[in-house]
Every structure is written in structure tokens, then in C-alpha cells.
Design a protein around this nucleic acid. Structure first.
Ligand SMILES: [Zn+2]
Ligand SMILES: [Zn+2]
Length: 733
DNA sequence: AGCACGCCGACT
DNA sequence: GTCGGCGTGCTC
């Protein structure tokens, strides 16, 4: 009787594995990493075997037996099992979350981890004789097929119909064959060398990266806009692929565009397998399996792809490493960038983190020597991104947010036939509705936050919780009917610019106007072609695309960041400013970027405008050091919410008391700051509080948090309070 | 989480 | 007397 116990991870908030008896017939074959169906509570669940062992802390009589083994071989290699284990421990997630929940839906449901067979057709010997001479199309199809095995897709692409295939099959002129996808795995990927002349910096970067293949190294590739980072990725990838390795490319949510994929597709003669959030369950399942089986040599994906199984993984590229979409913002708040670095470490392969505006965390690691720091400071093309100019708008008469000088400038660029982008990060017509007589502001009852006034369609929207209401006719306080809108949103700007620049109607690009990836891609394409001379855009237009005919970018206002409670606000503002500036201009048409600000003297704004991002980073890093913020200390935050404020306050007080002795005696390096309400204390009817833990020692912080989870979960009377831990938080608002 | 168990108030 | 409210406990 050896190894007759399986320790299984199940999707449940319980922070432990569950032990099951392995039926005799499965004992020789069951391995860690296989899925099993097990009886659980009053039903059945699919789980993942994490360990096969001979011992259990439970009496054997209490153990149930596995009902079904669902896999013939493990779903993951050892490294993938290890990274999931690490993820669970680091982010304080129950094992079931890390091992099971971070799988495609279909695999969670227990569907087989097998790609379906590929259906193809093949002409039979003398099949032609079975077709009458009148059936011209059928004969044409037969001719076209020749001796090859062809798929339905190929047949349709060649202009033949499914019906023709069916007819041929009925007359037995052709037959259907089923091919197993495993049979067509080719680890060889042909690379198309375009014979490009690279800048010295690019070539040097490629050499440094490829020199690190087959060992762990984190590499920060800091390259200014237009310095040719992508070409560096591609040539480094080529080297790894040539060694029959797989490559994982991680990009921000917004960065996974057809253009991005096209750049890879035209250089590598191999399917680029995509894993992103807009795939449906089947597509994600199939892509995942292709990665697992090694059929996919290149996987391009967003956050969740960081855990894609890749048996021959040899290189990880993570582009726009500063992008916040790599950090999951609900339930299990992992940061794919940090998971990717850990994965590279476990797998002993290099990882390239690329950005024009690296995060302070990665930059700090680079200057500390933990990461290899490569820089691309020259531009590959002649284009010089425009140097932003700050326009002081103190005491300026603004018209719907725009200064007169800016309007004149816009007119000049539009008259010259060029494109102008007005960047305003505020959807809707106006950010508030107000009573003209008494100053009452229309607020969402669930959030205590002002409603945004939208005009198309006409309604009030809470941007905190999504609540939509009709626009009030009367003041709720004094009864006056003079309700006015206050401030400027993209809709109001659109209305104003429409009448101000009649000949060039503006196109508004925001979430309300452009729905989904398809429409955005279409719009971006049109803009690149030079259509739509005047553009109004939010965040959506800030990233990823270069518009050659765009010669003027106006940034209406980024001053909010300067007063924000969010400790990363200024860092984000700087990144945004650099990105927005990078949209404009080309060699023959140099661009211009104007930033309106009430604080033109602000150091960071000035450094960004001098295009000295290195100086921005040093400045911000110094500020973080002075205040002992990350990366100089590690942070974790406990977020708690309840329907009554007293419950959350009580929860925080209780947690503080419970943990106090542990912090005093075991975790002296961990400091718990006093609990405080969230910046937006009430949201969607819930009252929210935060408790920040800080420490210079990651291990102690982690251990203290583990203790904290145990204490909270052992405590009764807290069921009304929802809470979660956020490790390395993006913000503490 | 999801579900059963059990202990109290207010109904036919 | 019982119907159902939710606070508590358990899941190998
Ligand atoms: Zn609201
Ligand atoms: Zn009023």
C-alpha cells in the first residue's frame, strides 16, 4: 500500500488541499498535475492532483475515493505546477484558485485535454471515374485537390462549397480522413530575415539578450518611442525558436491588435497562437491546448496567458511592462509581470521587460543590478517625437476647457489639412449636474459620488458603480428647476468643436462611442489613413498607435494627478504624457504637443517635456525613497467592505487587535498602518476601508499575512464583511 | 462558495 | 403549534 492518497486542489475558498483515496486501478498511473472528479460535500467537483503520497493527516475512514481520473498525463510540467504554487502562496490565494481556477473554463469543467481531430478530405484512386462529366464543379474540385489532403477551410478558400465535398463523398470519389494534431507538431519555425539595417544599440541589445538564452536573466529593455523595440524582440525570438524553444509574448490588454500579430506573423512561418480576454471558451481552450502540446511555438497573450503551459518555453517577452492591465484588479490580484519574472526564474530562461516608460519597480531593479539594463536611445526612423510644450492656463479664459491660443493653433493645423487630437480623459457631457440657485449637486446614493451628465443618450451615469438615472428636472434641495451642467467631458467638447470647426467635424473616440475591439480597430485604421481630421479621445487613443498625419495633440488637463491621493498618479501621468506625445508626427511632418496646465512649473511635467524620462524616473524614485513607498518597502493592503460602516470599522479594529501580539513578537519588521476609509468610502452601497501593511522584508510580510488570514477565518461574526488581500497594490484608494 | 443545521420571532 | 429568518459550521 504505497501512494494511495491524492492531495487535490478544488475551487473553494478553503485554504487547503483535500485528501482522497486513489482507487487501486489508478494507483500505478495517477500523477500530480492530472485532473480528477471527486465527491465533495453533497456533490462532485473537478480538481487537480497536487501531490500523490502515502500519508494523510486524516483518518482513512474519513477519506472518500476519487470517482474518476480525467487525464492520462499531467496538464502541466513541473515548472507550471511550481509557479502556480508560488502564485498561491505569494498572493495569499487558496490552492484551488491557483491550480484550478486559473484554467480555461472547459478544463475546469472536466473536458478532455485533447485537441479535436482535424477533418480532411482526400481523393480516392480513380475517384474521377465515379463522377459524371456534367458535374463540372465537382470535377474541378477533384482536380484542384489532386493527391493532397485538404481541409474544409482550404476548400472554401479556393472557392468551392461544402455541398460539393458532400456530393463527392456520397459518390465515394473522395474520403474523409481524421488526423491527430499531435502528428503535425513541428518545432522548426522558419524566420524571415528582412536584412534590415539595425542601429548599433538594437544589434547590441539583441546580442545581449540572446547571450542569456538557456539561463535565467531579467532584462529591462528601456527604449524610447520609435527606437525599434519590436525588431529587437523579433530577432531575439528567432534565436530561441531556432533552438526549438517556445516563446511567450505578453502584451497589455489594449496592445493585442491585429497589427501587432501581423508583425509577428510576417516574420515567422508558424501559427501565432493568441490568448486574450475576448476569446470565447472554446477558442481559449483550444489555444491553451496548442500551447500545452507544443503545437504553438509562439504564444501572444494578455495577463492570464502568463500561466499558459509551454513545455519548451525558452524566452518570455513582456511588452509595455509598466502597463497596469498586467495586474488583475479583482479577486486574485496577481501581477502578470511579477509572475512572469518568477516563471522565467523557475524555468531558467531569460525574460525581457520592455517599455519606453518603465515602472519604478523594474527601473529600481535595473539600477540595483538585479536586472540587466539595456537602453535604446536612438530612433530607428527619422521621426522625432514632438517635444511637449506646457501652456500655463492660470487666469486664462477657457472655452469648454480650451485656451484661446490652443484654439488658434488647432485652426492652423486643421487649415493645413493635418490631423489634430484633443486628449481628454473624461467621458460624458459634463462631470456634474448642479443646481444654479443653491449649489446642490446630483449624487449617486449608492456611492456619494456625483453623477456624470451624458447627452447621448440623455441620462445621468455614476462612473463609480454604473448606476443610470434620468436627469433630474428639479433640485432635490430647493426645488429649483435651474439644473445646470458643470465642467467639460468629451461629449461637450465634441459639441463645441463641431460648431467651432465646422469644416472638420470631430470624431469622438471613447467607450460610449466606440464599442469593442473590432470597432476600435476599424476607427484606428481610418485615422491612420488620414480620415477624421479632428479627433477627441480618452485613454483609448493614448496607446499603441502612431498616426503619421497627426501634427497637433492637445492635452486638455492632467492636473488631477498632481492632487491625487494615489501615490502612483504622477508616475502614470508621466507615462501617459510620453505615450500621447508618441502618437504624433513623422519625418516630413513634425508634430506638436501642447499640455494645458495650472502648474507649468511642476518638476515632473518639465522633465517629461524635456524628454528626459531617465530624469523623471530618478526624481520619482527619490520621492518614493523619501516617503518609504514601494519599491523601497513592500506593501500589502487588506480591503474590507460591508453594507454598514460600523461593521467595517469594527472589523478593522478587531483585525488590528488580533494581529497585534503577532506583530510584536514574531513579525517586528512588519508595520500595520492605522485603518482608513477608502478615498471613495461608499461605493455601490458598500462602505470600504483599507489597512496597509508595510515591510522591508518580503518573507516576514508574507508570513504575517498568512497568519492574518488564519486569524480572520477563525473569527466568528465577520460574515457580513467582505475582505481581500492585495499584495503589491497598484493604489491604496 | 454553497449548503444544511438549528435556534428564535410572528403568523395561520 | 410551524414557517422562515440568518448566524454558524463543514466540506477530504
Ligand atoms: Zn454609484
Ligand atoms: Zn437648489
Amino acid at each position: 500500500m504505497q501512494n494511495h492518497i491524492a492531495r487535490v486542489a478544488l475551487i473553494t475558498p478553503v485554504r487547503r488541499l483535500f485528501d482522497y483515496l486513489i482507487p487501486n486501478e489508478n494507483q500505478p498511473t495517477l500523477e500530480a498535475g492530472m485532473r480528477v472528479r471527486v465527491p465533495f460535500a453533497r456533490g462532485h467537483k473537478v480538481g487537480l492532483v497536487v501531490e500523490v503520497t502515502s500519508q494523510s493527516e486524516w483518518t482513512l475512514a474519513k477519506l472518500k475515493a476519487i470517482s474518476d481520473v480525467l487525464d492520462d498525463s499531467p496538464l502541466f510540467d513541473t515548472v507550471n505546477m511550481q509557479i502556480r504554487h508560488w502564485l498561491g502562496e505569494y498572493y495569499m490565494a487558496p490552492p484551488g484558485e491557483a491550480y484550478m481556477n486559473l484554467l480555461p473554463k472547459k478544463l475546469k469543467a472536466g473536458e478532455p485535454a485533447l485537441l479535436p481531430s482535424i477533418e480532411k478530405w482526400q481523393a480516392n484512386v480513380d475517384g474521377k471515374l465515379l463522377v459524371t462529366n456534367q458535374a463540372k464543379r465537382q470535377l474541378a474540385l477533384l482536380d484542384w485537390m489532386g493527391q493532397r489532403q485538404v481541409s474544409l477551410v482550404e476548400v472554401k478558400q479556393a472557392g468551392f462549397s461544402r455541398d460539393l465535398l458532400n456530393k463527392l463523398q456520397e459518390s465515394q470519389a473522395i474520403s474523409r480522413v481524421e488526423l491527430r494534431p499531435e502528428g503535425s507538431i513541428s518545432k522548426q519555425v522558419n524566420y524571415r530575415d528582412l536584412g534590415l539595417t539595425l542601429l548599433d544599440e538594437q544589434q547590441a541589445a539583441i546580442n545581449r539578450i540572446t547571450a542569456q538564452l538557456n539561463q535565467f536573466k531579467a532584462i529591462l529593455l528601456q527604449g524610447v518611442t520609435g527606437s525599434g523595440k519590436t525588431e529587437v524582440y523579433i530577432q531575439a525570438m528567432a534565436k530561441a525558436l531556432q533552438q526549438n524553444q517556445q516563446v511567450l509574448v505578453l502584451v497589455p490588454e489594449i496592445g493585442l491588435t491585429p497589427q501587432t500579430l501581423q508583425r509577428f506573423a510576417e516574420r515567422f512561418d508558424s501559427e501565432i497562437v493568441v490568448l486574450h480576454s475576448e476569446l470565447n471558451d472554446t477558442e481559449r481552450y483550444l489555444a491553451w491546448l496548442k500551447a500545452k502540446m507544443g503545437l504553438a511555438r509562439i504564444v501572444v497573450g494578455t495577463r492570464s496567458a502568463v500561466l499558459a503551459p509551454m513545455p519548451d518555453l525558452g524566452l518570455i517577452i513582456l511588452d509595455e511592462e509598466h502597463d497596469i492591465s498586467f495586474k488583475q484588479q479583482d479577486s486574485l490580484r496577481y501581477n502578470a509581470r511579477d509572475v512572469a519574472v518568477k516563471r522565467a526564474h523557475l524555468q531558467q530562461v531569460p525574460i525581457v521587460l520592455g517599455s519606453a516608460t518603465p515602472s519604478l519597480e523594474s527601473y529600481y531593479n535595473a539600477i540595483q543590478g538585479r536586472y540587466l539594463h539595456l537602453k535604446l536611445q536612438q530612433r530607428a526612423q527619422q521621426s522625432q517625437p514632438p517635444q511637449p510644450v506646457v501652456l500655463d492656463i492660470k487666469d486664462q479664459p477657457l472655452q469648454d476647457g480650451l485656451a484661446p491660443r490652443v484654439l488658434d493653433l488647432m485652426a492652423k493645423h486643421l487649415d493645413a489639412g493635418n490631423q489634430v487630437l484633443v486628449f481628454l480623459n473624461r467621458r460624458g457631457f459634463a462631470p456634474a449636474l448642479m443646481c444654479h440657485e443653491c449649489g446642490w449637486i446630483y449624487e449617486c446614493q449608492r456611492c456619494d459620488h456625483h453623477f456624470t451628465y451624458h447627452q447621448s443618450p440623455r441620462q445621468a451615469q455614476c462612473h463609480q458603480c454604473g448606476e443610470i438615472t434620468p436627469v433630474p428636472r428639479q433640485c432635490h434641495s430647493c426645488g429649483s428647476t435651474q439644473i445646470i451642467d458643470w465642467g467639460v467631458g468629451t461629449e461637450k467638447l465634441e459639441a463645441f468643436l463641431k460648431q467651432r470647426f465646422e469644416k472638420t467635424p470631430p470624431l469622438r473616440v471613447d467607450r460610449d462611442n466606440i464599442r469593442g475591439k473590432g470597432q476600435l480597430a476599424q476607427t484606428l485604421h481610418e485615422v491612420k489613413q488620414g480620415e477624421h481630421q479632428l479627433l477627441i479621445g480618452t485613454q483609448m487613443l493614448a496607446k499603441g498607435h502612431h498616426f503619421p498625419n497627426l501634427t497637433l495633440t492637445v492635452i486638455v488637463n492632467l492636473d488631477n494627478a498632481l492632487y491625487s491621493a494615489d501615490f502612483r498618479a504622477i508616475e502614470r501621468m508621466s507615462q501617459l504624457l510620453v505615450q500621447v506625445a508618441g502618437r504624433a508626427g513623422r519625418g516630413d511632418k513634425p508634430g506638436q504637443v501642447v499640455l494645458q496646465s495650472h502648474h507649468p512649473e511642476h518638476s515632473v511635467i518639465n522633465l517629461v517635456c524635456q524628454q528626459n524620462y531617465e530624469a523623471v524616473l530618478s526624481y520619482l524614485l527619490q520621492e518614493r525613497q523619501a516617503m518609504m513607498l514601494p519599491p523601497y518597502q513592500f506593501w500589502a493592503v487588506l480591503r474590507a467592505e460591508a453594507h454598514q460602516p460600523a461593521l467595517v470599522e469594527q472589523f478593522c479594529a478587531q483585525v488590528t487587535e488580533l494581529l497585534k501580539p503577532y506583530l510584536q513578537h514574531h513579525y517586528q519588521q512588519v508595520i500595520l498602518l492605522p485603518a482608513f476609509p477608502a478615498a471613495q468610502e461608499k461605493r455601490a452601497g458598500k462602505y470600504r476601508y483599507l489597512m496597509v501593511f508595510e515591510s522591508k522584508q518580503r518573507n516576514q510580510l508574507n508570513a504575517a499575512l498568512k497568519q492574518l488570514c488564519q486569524l480572520i477565518e477563525a473569527q466568528k461574526g465577520l460574515s457580513q464583511v467582505r475582505w481581500l488581500l492585495d499584495i503589491d497594490p497598484q493604489d491604496i484608494c
